[in-house]
Lab assay of single mutants.
Amino acid sequence: GGHPVTTQMVETVQNLAPNLHPEQIRYSLENTGSVEETVERYLRGDEFSFPP
């Protein structure tokens, strides 16, 4: 991942996926670069990993 992630982006995802840890959200956003894509992954039931 190398996309810039803002606190705003993390908070937006958190509102839609409250049971995800912020670190999981941030890591996913760094890989996708997209709030929409991260939320899609969540709704699909994809696994969210923590940063290594």
Rank of each mutant, 00 (worst) to 15 (best):
Q24L: 05
N19K: 11
P18T: 07
T12I: 14
N19Y: 09
F48Q: 01
V10N: 02
H3F: 15
Q8F: 10
Y42P: 01
H3P: 09
T7N: 13
L29Y: 01
T6F: 07
E37H: 08
F48M: 09
F50G: 02
G45M: 03
T32Y: 06
E37P: 00
F50Y: 12
P52Q: 08
S28Y: 06
Y27T: 08
R26G: 01
P52W: 06
E23I: 09
E37R: 09
F50P: 03
Q8I: 13
V39R: 03
V35G: 00
Q24G: 01
P4G: 11
V13H: 00
E23K: 08
R44A: 11
L16D: 03
G2H: 14
L29V: 03
T6L: 06
Q8Y: 10
S28D: 12
P52D: 09
S28M: 14
N15A: 15
S49T: 12
A17S: 03
S28N: 06
S34N: 09
E37T: 10
A17C: 15
E47T: 11
V5R: 01
P22A: 09
I25G: 00
P4F: 15
V5A: 05
E11R: 13
V13Q: 00
E30I: 09
E30Q: 13
V13E: 00
S28G: 02
P52H: 08
P52R: 06
V13F: 00
L20M: 05
N15S: 14
E11T: 11
E47L: 11
T12N: 10
R44M: 08
S34C: 06
G2M: 13
L43A: 07
V35P: 04
F48C: 03
T38W: 02
E36R: 11
T32V: 03
V39F: 09
L16F: 12
E47D: 13
H21L: 09
V13I: 08
M9P: 01
L43D: 05
D46W: 10
R41P: 01
P18C: 10
E11D: 11
N19Q: 11
E30V: 08
Y27W: 14
I25S: 00
G33S: 05
S34T: 06
E37N: 07
V10F: 08
G45A: 03
E36C: 12
I25D: 02
P18D: 04
L16P: 00
R26D: 04
P51S: 05
H3V: 10
L29F: 00
G1E: 11
Y27G: 07
G1K: 12
I25M: 00
V39Y: 12
R44E: 05
E11G: 07
P18H: 07
E37G: 07
D46A: 08
E47A: 11
E40V: 11
E40A: 14
P18M: 06
G1D: 10
S34W: 01
P52Y: 07
P22R: 10
G33V: 03
P22C: 10
G2R: 15
T7E: 14
E40M: 15
V5I: 12
H3W: 13
V35D: 01
V35T: 06
S34R: 03
E40K: 15
R44D: 05
L16E: 05
Q8A: 13
T12W: 15
T38V: 07
A17G: 02
Q24P: 01
M9G: 02
I25V: 06
P52C: 09
L29E: 04
N15F: 12
I25Y: 00
S49F: 13
L20D: 00
G33L: 07
V5E: 03
E30W: 10
N19E: 14
Y27P: 05
G1Q: 14
N15Q: 15
G2I: 14
G45I: 00
E23V: 08
R44G: 06
D46I: 08
I25T: 01
T32K: 00
P4S: 12
N31T: 15
P4D: 12
E11I: 14
Q8P: 05
N19H: 12
T6H: 06
G1Y: 12
V39Q: 03
R26Y: 10
G45D: 04
E23S: 13
E23A: 14
E37Y: 06
Q8D: 12
H21C: 13
P18Y: 04
V10S: 02
E40T: 11
G2N: 13
G33E: 04
T38A: 02
T38M: 03
L20S: 00
E47C: 13
T6C: 08
E36P: 06
E40Y: 12
T12E: 14
T12P: 01
M9Q: 08
S49L: 15
P18I: 09
T12H: 14
Q8N: 10
Y42L: 06
E11Q: 13
H3C: 14
Q14W: 07
Y42V: 05
G1P: 13
N31K: 13
P22D: 06
T6E: 04
E37V: 12
Y42G: 02
N19R: 11
M9L: 05
L20Q: 01
N19C: 15
I25L: 01
E30G: 07
Q8C: 13
F50T: 03
T32E: 03
S28K: 01
D46V: 08
M9I: 02
R26K: 11
N15C: 15
T7W: 12
R41T: 04
E30F: 08
D46G: 06
E47I: 12
E30N: 06
S34Q: 03
P22M: 09
T12V: 12
L20Y: 02
P52E: 09
Q14F: 07
E40W: 09
P18V: 08
H3Y: 15
E11F: 07
M9T: 02
T38K: 00
G2E: 10
T7R: 14
N31F: 14
E37F: 05
F48Y: 01
H21K: 10
E11P: 01
P18G: 06
M9D: 09
L16G: 03
V5K: 03
E11C: 13
N19W: 08
A17M: 08
L20N: 00
R26E: 06
P51G: 08
L43S: 05
P51V: 04
V5C: 05
R41M: 10
N31C: 14
V39W: 09
G1N: 12
V35C: 04
D46Q: 08
V35H: 01
V10A: 04
T32H: 04
E47K: 10
P51K: 04
Q8L: 13
P52L: 09
P51Y: 09
Q24Y: 02
V10Q: 06
V13G: 00
V13N: 00
Q14V: 07
Y42C: 03
T12C: 13
Q14M: 14
N31M: 15
E40G: 09
D46P: 00
R26I: 11
Y42R: 01
T38C: 04
R26A: 07
L16W: 10
H21D: 10
G33H: 08
H3A: 09
L29W: 01
V39I: 15
V5N: 03
H3T: 10
L16I: 14
E37I: 13
E23R: 08
S49Y: 12
E40D: 11
P51I: 04
D46H: 09
Q8R: 12
G45R: 00
E30P: 00
N15L: 15
L43W: 09
S34Y: 01
Y42A: 07
E23D: 15
L43N: 09
G33T: 03
V35E: 03
Y42M: 04
H21P: 02
E23T: 10
N31D: 13
Y42D: 02
V13Y: 00
Q14Y: 06
S49W: 10
A17Y: 09
V35Y: 03
